[in-house]
Amino acid sequence: KQVQVGDEKYTFDTPEEARKFAEKVAKEKNLKVTEKNGNFHVE
């Protein structure tokens, strides 16, 4: 599963790991997490 933050992409083995990372980054940057096709976008 992938997490996209701006132009950066991070790959994780499980959706749970990806979601945790996305939520942590979103909180730090005051952004929101959206899920698209099983991948997460922080925007």
Rank of each mutant, 00 (worst) to 15 (best):
G38F: 01
N30E: 08
Y10E: 01
V33A: 05
Y10P: 03
K9R: 13
T11R: 08
E16W: 02
E17A: 10
V33Q: 03
D7V: 07
K27W: 09
K20R: 13
E35V: 14
A26H: 01
R19C: 13
N39D: 11
G6L: 09
A18V: 00
K29T: 09
D7M: 09
Y10V: 04
G38C: 10
V5F: 10
T34N: 09
A22L: 06
V42A: 04
A22S: 00
V42R: 00
N37R: 00
R19M: 09
E35N: 09
V33Y: 06
V33I: 12
E23I: 00
V5R: 02
V5K: 02
A18K: 03
Q4L: 15
E17V: 01
K27Q: 12
A26F: 01
E35K: 09
V25C: 14
E28Q: 08
K1F: 15
K36F: 11
K29P: 04
N30L: 07
A22Y: 03
G38A: 01
F40Q: 05
K24G: 10
N37W: 01
D7K: 12
K29C: 15
V42M: 04
P15W: 14
E43Y: 10
E35G: 04
E35H: 09
E23F: 02
G38H: 03
K27N: 11
K9N: 11
Y10C: 09
K1Y: 15
G6H: 07
V33N: 04
E23T: 00
N30C: 12
H41D: 08
V33F: 09
A26Q: 03
A26K: 02
E28A: 09
F40R: 04
T14V: 02
V33S: 04
R19E: 09
E35A: 07
G6D: 07
A26D: 02
T14A: 02
K20M: 10
Q2N: 10
D7N: 13
N37I: 01
V25Y: 07
E35C: 14
A18T: 02
K27D: 07
G6R: 05
R19D: 06
H41K: 07
H41W: 15
A26M: 04
G38M: 02
E43N: 09
T34R: 10
V42L: 10
V42H: 03
E28G: 07
D13R: 02
T34C: 11
N39P: 00
V3K: 01
R19V: 06
N39M: 13
K9Y: 14
V5H: 05
N30W: 05
A22K: 01
V3G: 01
G38I: 00
K20G: 08
K24W: 07
A22T: 00
K32Y: 07
H41L: 14
Q2H: 14
E28Y: 00
E35W: 03
D7R: 09
F21G: 06
D7A: 09
F40M: 07
V33W: 07
A18Y: 00
E35Y: 09
Q4T: 14
N39Y: 10
Y10A: 02
H41S: 08
V3R: 00
E8M: 13
E35L: 13
A18R: 01
D13C: 13
V3C: 05
N37T: 02
F40V: 06
D13W: 02
E35T: 11
R19H: 08
E8T: 13
K32F: 08
N30S: 09
K36C: 15
T14G: 05
E17R: 00
F40S: 04
E23H: 04
F12I: 00
F21W: 07
T11E: 11
R19N: 07
F21E: 05
V3E: 01
V33L: 10
T11A: 08
F21P: 05
G6V: 05
E35D: 07
Q4D: 06
F12K: 01
L31W: 12
E16G: 07
Q2R: 10
N39F: 08
F12C: 09
E8A: 11
K20E: 14
N39K: 08
G6Q: 06
F40Y: 11
T34Y: 14
Q2V: 15
E43S: 12
D13G: 09
V25Q: 06
K29M: 13
E8S: 09
K24M: 13
A26W: 00
N37F: 06
G38D: 06
L31P: 02
E43F: 10
R19T: 04
E17I: 03
K9D: 06
Q2T: 15
K29R: 14
A26C: 08
Y10Q: 03
N39C: 13
V42T: 05
E23M: 01
D13K: 07
K1G: 13
E16T: 06
L31G: 13
